[in-house]
Design a protein around this nucleic acid. Sequence first.
RNA 1: GGCGCUAUGGUCAAGUGGUUAAGACGUCGGCUUCUCAGGCCGAAAUCGAGGGUUCGACUCCCUCUAGCGCUACCA
Length: 498
Amino acid sequence: MTEDIRVRYAPSPTGHLHIGNARTAIFNWLFARHYNGKFIIRIEDTDSARNIADGEKSQLENLAWLGLDWDESPEKPGEYGPYRQSERNEQGIYQPFIDKLLTEGLAYKSYKTSEQLASEREAQQAAKQAPHYVYEYEGLTREEREAKYAEFEAKGLKPVVRFRVPEEKTYAWDDIVKGHIEIGAKEVGGDWVIQKADGMPTYNFAVVVDDHMMKISHVLRGDDHVSNTPKQMMIFEALGWDIPQFGHMALIINGETGKKLSKRDENVLQFVEQYKALGYQPQAMVNFIGLLGWSPKGEDEIFSLEEFKQMFDETRLSKANAKFDQKKLEWINNQWMRRDLEEIMPQLIQELVTANLVSPADATAKADWLAQVIKVAGVEGISYTREIVDLVRQPFFELGDITDEMVAYLTSEEGRRVFDAWESAYIALPDDATAEDYLNAIRGIQNQLEIKGRNLWNPIRIATTHEVQGPNLPEMLVVLDKATVLQTMADVKSNYLN
RNA sequence: GGCGCUAUGGUCAAGUGGUUAAGACGUCGGCUUCUCAGGCCGAAAUCGAGGGUUCGACUCCCUCUAGCGCUACCA
C-alpha cells in the first residue's frame, strides 16, 4: 500500500466502550499501525438525544487502557478538525454540501410528518411490499416543487433533506474482508434523509463528508454497516469524491442467543469497564479480542498488542461471525496474570483492601508478606484478580468452622497421635523454618507413627488452618504467623481433644 | 417479505484438489500417591444437506437449508 493510510474509529458517545466497538477500534489501530498509517478518533454525536454525558470520555479512557493511542482526536486536534460531528455541524461544515446537492437537484426538501411516513410504511407492509420512501414531487417542475416548499413552510412545517436515489444504479465494491459485493440502489429503501429537521446531518451523510475531509483511506467497520455502504457511495459519487476502501468485519455474537451482541443483553458482560473492574488485564482483553474473527499463522495464542501489530494481515480476517467465549477470555487472562505476576501484584493486594481483608495502611506496610500469601494461595487457579479474595480469605485472614468430618479426623485414635506429634514438632521448629523443614517434620511423623495420607495430613491441616484442603500445607505454614498458628492449635486442642 | 453476508467438533479456528482434517478454550478420563489449584498424558469431527465436475473433494460449480445483518429524521 503506497498511499497514505488514514483510518478512523468513530464511536457515538451513547455509552461506555462496548466489546464490539473495542474490537473495531483495535483492528483499525492494528491496520493503521501495521502499515505506518494514522489512526484517528472522531466522535459521531449527531443524535443529541442519545448522547450520554461521560460517554466520550469513558470510551477514550478505556481505549487508552487497552493500550491504543491515536494521532488525531477531539482533544488532540490534527489539521482536519474539529473531531466532533456536533461541532463540525455548528461550524457549518456540512451545510454547503447539502446546499450543493439541493441546488443541483440531487436532493430535495421533504415535509412529510412522521405520522405520514408511518402510515405509508404500514400500507406497504400490508401490501407485502418492501418499505420504501415514496417521492412526493413526481412529475413536478422545479418551480412547482419550490412552491410546495413555500406552502409547507407557511404551515410551519420543518423539512428534512432527502437524497434523490438513482435507483437504476448498482453499487459495487471489493470489500477488504468479504470480497466483491454488489447492491442495487433500489435496495436502500428509497430517498433517504441526509439532514434531519433539527439541522443535523444524518450519520450516513456526515460520515461521507468527514471521511472525505479527513482523508480517510480505509474504512474498517462491522458487518452491520454493509447495507449503509451503497448509501454512502452515492454521496461520495454525487459530491465527486474518491471512495475509500471498505472492509466489513464479521460481528461478535452472543453465545446464548446467537445474535449480535446487544447492549441490552444482560447475561454477558460486554463493556470493557466491567472486565477492568473485575481485574482483567488490558493485554488479555486485547489478546482475546484480537483472536475473535482473526487468526495468526502459527499455533500460538498469547500475543501482545505489539505482536499483533507486527503480524497483522487483513486477509486473515474471518468472514463468519464469532461467538463471545467467556471461558477462553478467562484462560487468556489467567495466562497474562501468571506471566506478569510481579507487575499485577499491587492490583492483587488492592483486591484484598477492597474486600476489607486488609487496611490500606497494611497493604503498604505488609506488601511483601501479602505478596507471599497471594503466591502461596496460587494465582494459577484464578481467572481475574478479584477472585484472589476467596482463595486467600481462609485461612490467612479468617478461620472457617470445623465440621463434623474434621472433628472425626481430629478425634480418631490416629488423629490424636498425629496432633500430639505435630504439636511438639511444630513448637520445636524455628520461626524461620522453610517449607522443606515443615515437610520433613511431617514426613518424620509419618515414619515415626506409620500413618500416612489423609489420616496424617488432615489432622495437621485442621489443627493449623481449620481446613481440609487448600494450597500446599508446608508453604502455607511458612507464611502463617507462628504465634497465631500456635493459638489456633491450642484452641483446637481444648475444644476437641480434651 | 426484500436485499446482503456466512456455514470445519460445544466454542475460537488452521486448511485454498490428494493431510492420520493443525492448534487453543471447554468437556471427559488417567497420572502427579494429603486435598484444592497447577502441570503432564490421553479421548472425542462421517468438514450444514443434496446434487454435480474430477482418477480424487472440506477445498471448484449448482440447488436447498439454516443462521446472522440491514431494511429510522439511530449510529
